[in-house]
Amino acid sequence: MATDRAMNHPSAVGAGATRRALLRTSGVAAAGAAVALSAPFVRNARAAETTVWKVQTSWPAGVGLQTFKNWCGTIKEKTGGELEFKPFAAKEVVGDFELLDGVKNGVLEAMNSFTLYWAGKLPATAFLSSYLMGLRYPHEWDIFFYSKGGLQAAREIFAKQGLMYVNRIHHGPNIIHSKKPIRGIEDFKDLKLRVPGGMIAEGFAAIGAKTTLLPGGEVFSALEKGTIEAADYTGPAVNWDLGFQQVSKYIWTGPPGLESIYQPVDLMDFCVRMDVWNKLSPAMKRWVDDEVQVYSNEHHAAIQKADMEAWGKFEKAGTQITRLPAQDLPKFQRVAVPIWFKWANKDKDAARLFKLQLEVMESHTCGYVTPDMYKGLKIDA
């Protein structure tokens, strides 16, 4: 009876109505949240047609190319049909070293390249990927990009070329395949060696190697013909897929714990022609930026997994793997440091990037560079 009276009280009726209203509102909110969670991006209603970008990568084959193509294949669905990436392998549309111009000139809308390829045209890009004895691990590069202003600096440098540097893409260490054993720094003397250019080429030339610059897609044939005796190129998984075990008997890496002393993080990037980028809505720009980070994670993980599995294949094929003796590291350091400063002084952009990276390398977070290593050297640019 008391319960009936309580339920019939005006305040109780109001409370019940309020509870029902809240339940209805919560249901709508929950449904809205479910929709938001199930769709990574809500299509812009004003985008009547799908915008298609032709995107060429520097990957010629292997897990790198397949991961890139798989990722491109998800974009249209993720954006509700607003944006689509049409992927192309290295050299499918333009030559590997013509990628930057291909995007600038409108042949492609975007590129996924090895950033170091542009060091000859843009010296600052030598500091946007690994270099001899420089930043050593992915997290150190992220300190530079996201804690020291490196990303904004990179975007400003590429903007001068009419390109939007969307973001960096992590890759793994590079290794050297050779027709003859390399056990120490002395074995590079007179070795005909393929390198990607920039400070890396100058570093190996300084220890006596006869360096030549080739895009990755031409390395196998050069080794096969004997025009080169050794070649730096990516890691074991991609190199296995490219057949390097057929044309070389030896692999050389850095000491334990540092697989590569010259390209431990062979960074790639995703760049878009600026006029194409500026046609995107602010929301879509933010989404693409975030999505490149997603791709970076997928790419890096796929490369590492495949590399771990590939080592055994090389060993089974009879490839001999040698590591640099730890005592040779100071020898490479002495060669590398003057080259750092030489490249930093090529222009103001290069100097800007190197100053930021030197701060990271000297910090107690890293601590493997000290002022005595560059005594008498300075940045003038």
Rank of each mutant, 00 (worst) to 15 (best):
N239K: 02
W240F: 13
G243C: 04
F244L: 09
Q245W: 11
Q245A: 12
Q246W: 03
V247K: 02
V247D: 01
V247N: 01
T253H: 09
T253W: 07
G254Y: 10
P255E: 13
P256H: 13
G257K: 04
L258P: 06
L258H: 14
S260P: 12
I261L: 12
I261N: 12
Q263F: 10
V265F: 08
M268F: 10
C271V: 14
C271A: 15
C271M: 15
R273S: 13
D275M: 03
V276M: 05
V276P: 02
K279W: 02
L280G: 13
L280I: 06
S281M: 04
P282N: 11
A283C: 04
W287S: 06
V288Y: 05
E291Q: 12
Q293G: 14
S296I: 08
E298I: 10
H299I: 08
H299E: 07
H300P: 00
A301P: 05
A302N: 14
Q304F: 07
K305F: 11
K305H: 08
D307N: 04
D307Q: 01
M308L: 14
E309D: 14
E309R: 00
A310P: 02
W311I: 06
G312S: 12
G312P: 02
G312M: 07
F314E: 04
F314G: 00
E315V: 15
